[in-house]
Design a binder for these strands. Sequence first.
DNA 1: CGTATACCTATTGTATACAAAAATTCTCTG
DNA 2: CAGAGAATTTTTGTATACAATAGGTATACG
Lengths: 234, 234
Amino acid sequence: MGKLFSKTYLALRQEILAGKLVSGESLVEQALADRFAVSRTPIREAIRQLQQEGLIESDQRGGLRVTVITIADAIHLYDCRLGLEQVAAIGACENATTRQLEDLQDCLAQANLAVPVLSDSDLQDQADELENRLQIDQSFHRLLAESSGNPWLADLLGQIFNKMVLLRLTTTYRNPDVLEIWAEHERIVTAIGQRDAQAAALAVRDHLVASKARVVQELQGLTVKNSLYSITLT
Amino acid sequence: MGKLFSKTYLALRQEILAGKLVSGESLVEQALADRFAVSRTPIREAIRQLQQEGLIESDQRGGLRVTVITIADAIHLYDCRLGLEQVAAIGACENATTRQLEDLQDCLAQANLAVPVLSDSDLQDQADELENRLQIDQSFHRLLAESSGNPWLADLLGQIFNKMVLLRLTTTYRNPDVLEIWAEHERIVTAIGQRDAQAAALAVRDHLVASKARVVQELQGLTVKNSLYSITLT
DNA sequence: CGTATACCTATTGTATACAAAAATTCTCTG
DNA sequence: CAGAGAATTTTTGTATACAATAGGTATACG
């Protein structure tokens, strides 16, 4: 039942999201076809899918490459989130099911479980834990988007989140101040639980403004740590 | 120099946007290929492009069809706009070039020129004039999005606008109260001209809330006029 | 030695043939 | 006549061959 293009799509997607295909790396159809042992046709189908998701973009001259996200892009994407997620929060106050509220609370619980990890664990554990936290953060925001009951909103935010994943890959910033983040998340969930749209929107706004500031600060002070992952400063 | 797929892309797009291909109509690759006298390959490329723009969507079972927009979708899309366009307005206050401000003012001027047309002209003239007004309205909002200096924002809003065009086609509602709309537009431009982000965001918000209300009201009271264009009520 | 032009190669664009899957129709049976 | 199932047809998925184009390299000429 697995069409070839969907196999290669998943494989490609995985490689991009796992950072095996570095941002900016140019994609040659034939090369990919050889690599996955299929013809160019399913490769192109897969690429079209990934383009739709914003993980691949077309170069100036028709070529294809893994989407490149710069700091400027990150700022711009945060601004988009700022608009959309406030609407999502307001929508969630009206439309979130009890199930969705529970899921959001589960996210908070998971986050609390993840807190205790400290600096006496080894480096790999720390990296895993970091990844875990980012995963939870993503889940939270995806859940929020879905809770709005507005599928287009969820879709648009999904596109943005995908691009944010790419940013994470090219920069490997650690989200500092996890405790703050989770306090902010909690405030959002509480407001939604009380169906207080005004408070929820405000909580989201504050959270995103703070998050944006944290990320930008982190990235600004960042001289490229890993020269493989050169990021474009603007 | 025109690659075939870009020719067929433009042709297809034109047909969809002009309503020659009705929303929901299912698309068969071979049929389209015959129609445009090309092979299936460029057709698929064109379709991929249109899918990216949201004009074509894939049916439950992998089939393709012109995107269907319902009233519920319209409401949801307006909510997305509500979030994004406020951000756009705020961005425009910071980043709009004088050129862009001029363009926005040109839009207002064009709108004023379009006002005088009244009911003593024949039906075709009225239809043309209606089309013209909607065109101007679209241009205005696209300009606003671009003026933000945030390409992602402009892109996301572009996706939404495309879908709104489809709504227009399936419903042929007339934007009532054009005068109101243009007064609202003027308020937005004025605020941006004064670089007053707060006022601009508010003006955009009021405009969109009012617009949404107008459209919904128009659509709610609409029994399907043309049974060819059956729209799904929710 | 530098530049321009011609050739060569790498890559994408297009057509087409064929396979697989899905939908439809037709037929046979109860 | 209804329904299951087989055959046909329609439609999409995949491979491949070939054309066109763009980029790069080498060579010849100033």
